[in-house]
């Protein structure tokens, strides 16, 4: 059962996404801000991280950068989630080290596809 860490500050988005992911069989841990996200990622080593980009305390870009800089969290795939759908943002996300990128509003099947792809890429731990 793959573990997904969801870093999202908006309560409703968190609730929706976590429940739908759980129903699809994923084990979901949640963080409400960037700093908590980094900490949980370090301590729990999830299989994949869904990172909202606009977060309090530490924003998604910086959190991703930090995760990708640490050896223990570097290999965890990160999918950036953002409400801004502008090409500038995409580049910024990739630059920060995100493995993929999806825009809100979330199209669930599409996001699932991206999650599955990234999980299949790395060997199951």
């Amino acid at each position: 059962m793959a573990r997904i860490l969801l870093v999202e500050d908006n309560e409703m988005n968190r609730d929706m996404l976590s429940r739908r992911l759980q129903r699809k069989g994923y084990d979901v841990t949640m963080a409400v801000d960037g700093e908590q996200g980094v900490n949980i990622a370090k301590s729990e080593s999830p299989d994949l991280i869904l990172m909202d980009l606009s977060l309090p305390v530490l924003d998604g870009w910086e959190a991703t950068r930090r995760l990708k800089a640490e050896p223990e969290t570097r290999s965890i795939p990160v999918i950036a989630l953002t409400a801004h759908a502008m090409s500038g943002d995409k580049e910024k996300a990739i630059e920060a080290g995100c493995d993929d990128y999806d825009s809100k509003p979330i199209e669930f099947p599409r996001l699932l596809g991206k999650i599955e792809e990234l999980l299949n890429r790395k060997p199951a731990t």
Partner: peptide
């Protein structure tokens, strides 16, 4: 504006 809309659509 978009945030509550996303909630309606998502839920």
């Amino acid at each position: 504006l978009r945030t509550p809309m996303n909630a309606i659509i998502g839920y």
